[in-house]
Write a protein that binds this DNA or RNA. Sequence first.
DNA 1: GCAAAAGTGTTCCCTTTACACCCATGT
DNA 2: ACATGGGTGTAAAGGGAACACTTTTGC
Lengths: 273, 273
Amino acid sequence: MPPYDPSAFPPFAVTVDLVVLTVRRHALCTLVVRRGEAPYQGRWALPGGFVRADEDLGAAAARELVEETGLCAHDPAAPPPVPSNGAHLEQLATYGAPDRDPRMRVVSVAHLALAPDLPAPRAGGDANSARWAPVEELLGEDMIAGTVVSADGAEAGDDPEGTGKSGGPEALAFDHARILADGVERARSKIEYSSLATAFCPPEFTVGELRRVYEAVWGVSLDPRNFHRKVTGTPGFLVPAGGTTTRQGGRPAQLFRAGGATLLNPPMLRPEV
Amino acid sequence: MPPYDPSAFPPFAVTVDLVVLTVRRHALCTLVVRRGEAPYQGRWALPGGFVRADEDLGAAAARELVEETGLCAHDPAAPPPVPSNGAHLEQLATYGAPDRDPRMRVVSVAHLALAPDLPAPRAGGDANSARWAPVEELLGEDMIAGTVVSADGAEAGDDPEGTGKSGGPEALAFDHARILADGVERARSKIEYSSLATAFCPPEFTVGELRRVYEAVWGVSLDPRNFHRKVTGTPGFLVPAGGTTTRQGGRPAQLFRAGGATLLNPPMLRPEV
DNA sequence: GCAAAAGTGTTCCCTTTACACCCATGT
DNA sequence: ACATGGGTGTAAAGGGAACACTTTTGC
């Protein structure tokens, strides 16, 4: 890179933050890590890190995703966000209020990742410094503005399952509650008109499992019969995989794979209330 | 801002770029400015500039918008993007490929602005260094990748109206063709389910004028009868303004103002093809 | 009168919705 | 046998597409 007068523009730190969503036990959950350093020490935060000097933004997000979860996402530069063996990853929005980090001027390019249910988070080897937290627990109305509900950095306790509520609600660090809210809203609206909900499922899944994804993300219940007709009736949305079955209770269900169609038209209608 | 070790992270320049869209003469147009400096000198580019040291991203975009067009937009931090006396402004996406600017590492937070038809662009006093260009002219398939169609920086000639095609197609500087394409796509999809199309209209407008906005942005023609029923039948979408009329051809039409409803449900359906 | 744009009414068709009903497994 | 979830059939209600028709201006 040729030399350039650095006094011509103010220098910024650029980071990527990740909203990693998954569905665990019928609840929409997000990955949060415990902060070990100065500002907001001990508080939960979204995973993220600095963009390297010669790294693209999407590449930085994909690298952070691997570091935090081991998930391998497609390069988001490729236009159709088809899930591979890993997760869906897309850019969400950029947050750059001058006072969002007290240490320095940081602009954070937030990304949204959607992943199937994973065994347990591993954050740089430190097991209990990362967990899947139900978003409902993190976004309880008054927490979005950044207000601290439990004023101190109260411990959430040890939770081997990774989804427990032992710690009670606690505001996320920085403006991460706002970022999380924006990511959840993006996911909620995008599954209406796209095949994105399949990114929450394993490679092969049943119609019922896909329906439970919609129900968890939207927080509603859907008619199983009409849902089945809708998703199987849209050409290219689902393709039968081997035709075999699996079980989760009653009659064995047909297994499907996500089809080539990425757009769902007409869209899935989200019920009111 | 407290001191911090600047060697802990690579420094970036952060800019805002603007996709300013309007509808002129039944065509969707965008504001482009002539580059006077080193890389891509003489080529057209999207307006933009550096974010200042203590400036929010949205504030920087609003400032650039005023500098380039005189338009006064609402602070995009306010959640509902209601158009005021000025334009609609929202964040679009962030572009940060390591080689997108040969001089240095630049991350650009692109914003999308929607404005009613304006008399003529004024770019920092230099009149013929800015123009409204039809997007169709700038996004002719092969131009999105950044390829130069007319290899040199051919002059577009003097064009007092600001919309002329005298220069013929020429690729935009940097990755601005990609940014413009993303902004156009955002506008095209967002007018489906929101009242955003009214941002292209003056404060008071007729149903026919609003329909011609949809037709220009989508590049289709819509049934005037069904369109009228659709927009007037959605409660809160349009409110009668004074009830007076205006003319553009036949029978006088009722004047409307944008109503409080920002979401259009069920959405306006975009015809195929 | 004629052209042009603004509105209104009506019919057809497709989708959603709600729900009755049957199918295939585990206990 | 019974509970549980998977899947099909069907009729009523709602909304969009297409188009006939009336209204009100300018020329």
